[in-house]
Design a protein around this nucleic acid. Sequence first.
DNA 1: CTGTTAGCGCATTCAC
DNA 2: GTGAATGCGCTAACAG
Lengths: 366, 366
Amino acid sequence: MAATLKTVAAKAGISVSTASRALRSSPRVSAATQKHVKRVAVDIGYRPNQAARALRSGESRLIGLVLNNLLNVSFHTIAEVVQQRLSVHGYQLILSTTSGDAGVERELLMKLTDHGVDGVIVIGSGKNSKTLNSILQSGVPVVNVIRSSPDSLAPTVLAGDRDGASMATEYLVSLGHRRIGYVGGLETTDSGRERYLGYISGLNRNGIEVDEIMVRRGPFDPEFGAKAIEELLATENGMTALFAANHEAVFGILPVLAARGISLPQNLSVICYEDMPLLQTWQPAITVIDTGATEIAELTVDLILKQVSNLKKSSEGKRKQARTYRVGASLIARHSCASPSKLKETESPSPIMFEHVPPITPRAVR
Amino acid sequence: MAATLKTVAAKAGISVSTASRALRSSPRVSAATQKHVKRVAVDIGYRPNQAARALRSGESRLIGLVLNNLLNVSFHTIAEVVQQRLSVHGYQLILSTTSGDAGVERELLMKLTDHGVDGVIVIGSGKNSKTLNSILQSGVPVVNVIRSSPDSLAPTVLAGDRDGASMATEYLVSLGHRRIGYVGGLETTDSGRERYLGYISGLNRNGIEVDEIMVRRGPFDPEFGAKAIEELLATENGMTALFAANHEAVFGILPVLAARGISLPQNLSVICYEDMPLLQTWQPAITVIDTGATEIAELTVDLILKQVSNLKKSSEGKRKQARTYRVGASLIARHSCASPSKLKETESPSPIMFEHVPPITPRAVR
DNA sequence: CTGTTAGCGCATTCAC
DNA sequence: GTGAATGCGCTAACAG
């Protein structure tokens, strides 16, 4: 039989209420008693029953995370970082994947509330604002991540897609490129839209007009990437650099370039959006815009925890204005971009290097 | 105020116990009442309080998963598949990562039991058998995955590392190779040991002796892979094929081969252990031994759920003998292996292809 | 087939 | 500073 508070109280020769207070370090119990009770608890291996605690106090010490899948690097990075940080603060993570299905998403959100989670973090479809708002109004903190949710009253943490895309574009321009191809995501997605706008502004700020002949926008998959780059290569467009803003398409683009014998950066400068191991070990290592998944996750946890503690203080948790945070992108220069004027046929291959990029470098496994 | 069972009972004009039974489809309540109560519950948006249910019945509908990290493809694949399958059966997943620290692992296991999880799935360090066994003996099902836990009384699901490695080796032999290099993991790990044994037996069964000059075993990281392959290439060893059995090292091996201008499979046949997107899009696509992470996850969930239902039936959950299951590896032939006798300089590059490998193909993200 | 009663383990009034 | 009593929401005896 597992030890309960009653057991502890009995062994310590005090009442359950005092035992309860002592274990939770209440200031209304003498230091001596506190020490004694804690000692007894450890001795008999007492562990608080979280279900009972949740039922009584309304705090489950559980936080829900809802996202599409764990395959995408950004997603599983966020999941891992969120879990680790929550753990430090004594919270456990309930993980739920939706496969992008808004109906499934809604179901999972409800299940999470059934379990009385103390907070919900959503990388959402954007189609469940009502559910999310009702959760929020029922007193459970919510944070939207990466994708904004229209009409959501909860704070949102977004990546700096537009600025990041602009940064990528201007980087290529600064190297001397003026004919810069673009392979991106669909206009119907936040990132597809934002990054394209960044591409445009990056060009325009340097007096360059967008030439649609070098632009391909499509779904998030390798096949699209392969098709898009094949088309761009088959066209007389004078392209000297490529901005691959569609993460999944990169899996299609790079192999095609390799197969076509196009050397980077000699024949084409390439910059990709969202870092991953593949890009670090590709030959040459690919210059990227890092979205800062780790930082996004950290900020997200801070926002959830802040809301949780606010709720505790003010019994009615002052509902603040929904605020949007941006985590800026950063450029990681590697070896896939060069000035178009400096094309040398004799250049030796870049050295094999392994930078230390903590959130993405593969780690030991077994 | 959230609706409770009492609310439902009141609206339906019956007692709470009948309401409770009706909602749980107990056979001891009339179909009419059942229908009525369920209707009322939906109407007023009743949601069962899982904390209360857990406290009373001992079933939390929560399952814990403990693993190293989510970066490794096998790990996040397992996490995702486990979560999705559990969800179908009405269970939520509490995810915990340990970074390989046995102390952290123990802490997390305790936290999981605090939350009253109905089961624990562990890709463990192997150093917490006592904790795991005490959890098991307290009536909570446990399943060990991928890594066996010495002295564990719980069932274990393992990958078929030895047979898989043997399969890889014999495949290369069948193509005509006799000088097959090996880059693997440390002897101190299950997979490092098993795969090496498979390599040996694959050779021996074909009358080939292991030549240590072509063997490198080291830590799970890209740097080791790069170093190992450099050494193998710098040695006069007659190597015509390479078996890369250290998953993380692959990130170091492939770039070095590319940088050294070694064409696959013309100059060297290469087969890797554990599939991932990188290997599918590399030029040429790399032949791999797939560990079957998805199948491992599926079997694991089945085993956990079976234990859970057994516990329910027999009040004392007949403790069966701990059994070990193996999920066999499978070979996915792509384009990085060829017969050493058929070396052609004029061979055209293999076509760009995207196979459908569901558990690993990158999916749409936003 | 349905209602009444009790209590899971804990935190929290309220007394003292 | 401590103890006694109450009930969170629900399920499970026990009656009928």
